[in-house]
């Protein structure tokens, strides 16, 4: 996986990526161990981790959406792209793929905007904002994750477009963005 992005931005993207990897790794471990401890507590200590689902679900949303952003960076979102398998010329592929990426960016921008509407609805209700009923955690936490997820997905998709335009219809570009299936 390569992205042809000029240096200052490229390093920024890398730093962002590394920190996101650490967040994802740690959050994933927390998700798994919570359920492990819930079972241990129940059987060995007859104890109850009250309303743990409230915070563990919030962590989960961050994993879902930061993970989704990683998917955009790595270009692994599920695609049907069988139109591409009908095209032989790299140049035509290059045009088609960059057009669809462009459309994705537009869609991503609208989704990010809707994400902002959702987030703003939460924030503007402060101090009467929505909270969970058990631990009173604000719902702004998972929703911030959703919003950031869509923003990052759009951002990474834009990087793919930019990188693709810089690369041009080369073989390296093809192996990254439009690998042959058949």
């Amino acid at each position: 996986m390569h992205l042809n992005i000029p240096r200052p931005l490229g390093s920024l993207v890398n730093i962002l990526l590394r920190s996101k990897e650490y967040i994802l790794a740690i959050a994933s471990l927390i998700m798994a161990f919570v359920f492990f401890f819930v079972v241990i507590l129940r059987y060995w200590f007859q104890a109850d981790l009250f309303a743990y689902e409230e915070w563990v679900l919030m962590i989960a949303f961050w994993v879902y959406f930061l993970g989704g952003a990683m998917g955009s960076y790595e270009n692994t979102h599920v695609k049907a792209d069988f139109l591409l398998s009908l095209i032989d010329s790299v140049r035509t592929k290059w045009i088609v793929v960059n057009c669809t990426i462009f459309l994705e960016i537009i869609i991503g921008m609208v989704l990010s905007y809707w994400g902002w509407l959702m987030l703003w609805e939460e924030i503007s209700a402060y101090p009467d904002w929505q909270r969970t009923t058990g631990l009173e955690l604000p719902f702004v936490i998972p929703k911030l994750g959703i919003f950031l997820g869509f923003v990052l997905m759009t951002f990474y998709t834009s990087l793919h477009l930019w990188s693709g335009l810089r690369d041009g219809p080369t073989e390296e570009w093809e192996s990254d963005e439009a690998p042959p299936h058949i």
Binding site: R42, Q46, D48, F50, A51, E53, E54, T133, G134
Partner: peptide, 21 residues
């Protein structure tokens, strides 16, 4: 069920409690 009022009341009624869906 997962609510403070249910948990506290049930305990005050003399039960040990476990939160389950």
């Amino acid at each position: 069920w997962s609510a403070q009022s249910a948990k506290l009341a049930t305990q005050d009624m003399g039960y040990n409690t476990t939160t389950i869906d």
